[in-house]
Nucleic acid binder design. Structure first.
Lengths: 226, 226
DNA sequence: TTACGATCCGGACCGAGGTCCGTTTATTGT
DNA sequence: ACAATAAACGGACCTCGGTCCGGATCGTAA
């Protein structure tokens, strides 16, 4: 439960999900939603599974969908699901992959203020707002896709966001511990927090948005007066 | 999975864990580690379970301990564990209860700078450091006790901390959205984050501590220059 | 002391995530 | 076209968290 780091060279019991085969860290925004060299039937089943999962989740909510149900709906064996996606989190994450890549493309190479061209602080503000909106319209999935606490921050997609925020911060406040500051900012955008504040505390999204802008100002030291 | 709010008056299928029967919101720091009016055998079993759990966790780590194993080690039926503590999270939380109450007592009525008497900002600084240290020496348990994302922020003990931070912030920055700011600060103290930074990124605790102090200064607008 | 009702106990049972391995299928080289 | 080999398949199987309910126990009042 806490071992199983690599599995020795002797016969891998499972080819391991080649799904989250993260490209060189950050710039993993290539190839739309497909995958590298996958056998024909495998690719077909993968597509079927994603489609089935999407449909079932739309019907019953992410929390109400069983892996076995997905497999059945896709006319595929249960083992196939796990071989392809590793675990439940993997499948759910794959469903988020598209929007995740889009967001990444937007702030990495899109038009300002999200993309390069605008001053860093503007980009940072826009970034938070973008993430906020994205999370709100996928809260259900985002929550269900959250891995267990130990791995929450290891998730490649999240790391990418964190890296980006760190870079922006470095341009704004070079003397600060931008790694930690970035972590703090990302914490504000945690789907679980957003869910809690909007659904359980009834805060309007607008307030969260203001909160983000304010937070950015405070953290970067660009408060109004002074 | 997302219903079951209260259970109607008609025959409760389970008396429901009377464990986290939160007193009036905040000031729940009374009665050391025991419970209200519990039948003799029930109290005895409860103690046995807590003791067994503690021992097993010390041996195998929190993640490596099964509910059934705890039950067996306590010479008790599995059902008894769940009746008493509701679920795994409940049991683990109960183990943290003692230190949780102590912390609460400290910042609610202990000596400055944690307790009342010191200026709010000093208390806030001390608060973060205290939580940091407490988390570090119980990381394993804290992580394992973390409930699923949907309920992460609903946890009473966490709410208490959040409330306290909010109050301190209100004294420091009355015009800010202290609820949100408090949430941000609490995010920095999330055990999962601490685990990630210290165990996975290899940051020394000292750096996290500096990070907290710096964060407090930034967020409250009490930066050095100006 | 006894009897009775509320509370508690225990372990069989269930569902869902995850694994294993014998069988099937796609690909590739000839 | 035809092996031969690597990759993929599927579903039985395992574990573990959580539930249920018939029966044992405790507290109490007479």
């Amino acid at each position: 439960m806490l071992y199983a780091v690599f599995m020795s060279a002797t016969l891998p019991p499972f080819p391991r999900p080649q799904e989250p085969a993260g490209e060189p860290e950050l710039l993993q925004l290539s190839s739309a939603g497909d995958d590298p060299c996958l056998r024909a039937d495998a690719a077909r089943n993968r597509a079927r599974l994603l489609e089935a999962a999407t449909r079932l989740i739309a019907e019953h909510g992410a929390a109400g969908v069983t892996m076995e149900a997905v497999a059945a709906a896709a006319n595929v064996g249960k083992g196939t699901v796990f071989r392809r996606f590793g675990d439940r989190t993997g499948l759910l994450t794959a469903l988020l992959d598209h929007s995740s890549r889009k967001l990444q493309a937007d702030f990495l190479g899109g038009p300002p203020p999200l993309g390069p061209g605008a001053p860093a602080i503007e980009r940072l503000r826009a970034f938070g707002v973008a993430v906020l909106y994205r999370s709100v319209e996928q809260l259900d999935l985002q929550l269900a896709a959250q891995p267990e606490p130990t791995r929450r921050f290891a998730h490649p997609s999240l790391r990418a966001l964190h890296t980006h925020v760190t870079m922006l911060l470095r341009q704004i406040a070079p003397d600060a511990d931008c790694e930690l500051l970035a972590q703090t900012l990302m914490g504000y955008l945690d789907p679980a927090l957003i869910h809690h504040l909007t659904k359980q505390c009834g805060m309007p999204l607008e307030r969260l948005e203001k909160g983000w802008l304010d937070l950015v100002d405070r953290v970067t030291g660009s408060r109004p007066p002074c």
